[in-house]
Design a protein around this nucleic acid. Sequence first.
DNA 1: CTAGTGATTAAC
DNA 2: TTAATCACTAGG
Length: 211
Amino acid sequence: MTVGTFAREHLAVDVLAAARLLLGCLVVADRPDGQVVVRLVELEAYRGSDDPAAHSYRGRTDRNAVMFGPPGYLYVYFVYGLHFCANISCLPHGKPGAVLLRGAEVISDLDIARLARPTARSDADLARGPARLATLLGLQREHNGLDLTDPTSPVRLLPGDPVPAQRVRTGPRVGVAAAQDRAWRFWVDGSPAVSAYRRHPNQARRQSDRK
DNA sequence: CTAGTGATTAAC
DNA sequence: TTAATCACTAGG
């Protein structure tokens, strides 16, 4: 099976199926200072057509154009004035959708990963959280629109060992104000590189949640 | 828990 | 033109 076949056929089907499938997959990044390989352990699905939390919900703009393109491309955006986050485009050309990369475990090279994320207090912190993951991979604006299935790309997606169903957990997306009821976050149970759940600050606290 | 960062977008 | 929003992290 070629890498291109792997990504495009499956990512085109649906954002939820894509997020599930991407668990356990590998991302290879050729940084200026060396190569880093990570295993994806936490992902969130976003679907532009009917998902108020998706960047593409209100239509295509210059920023979110990659979400409307063919599947298997890298959508990098700048958020909160200082962070980059990385997504993989899903759904056929013209249908907006993406999966946000939220957490990953470093496979190699640990020394390069520590240099890329000098503030990480532990190895689990190297790529726990979407902006940390993007920083570790060295992703910036210029990487937006890269083809992750192209062997000549500096960032590539590869199949990994499949994650068995009993290790997969789902739940609400982290920090998303809209569509709280959708369990569109997927993670590998027990991985140290999965972020702690955080309620969105704008979400009203329910009486029963209060201590 | 909170500050802080700046692009993006919708509303004027 | 302006102001609110934002899929976050680091530090206390």
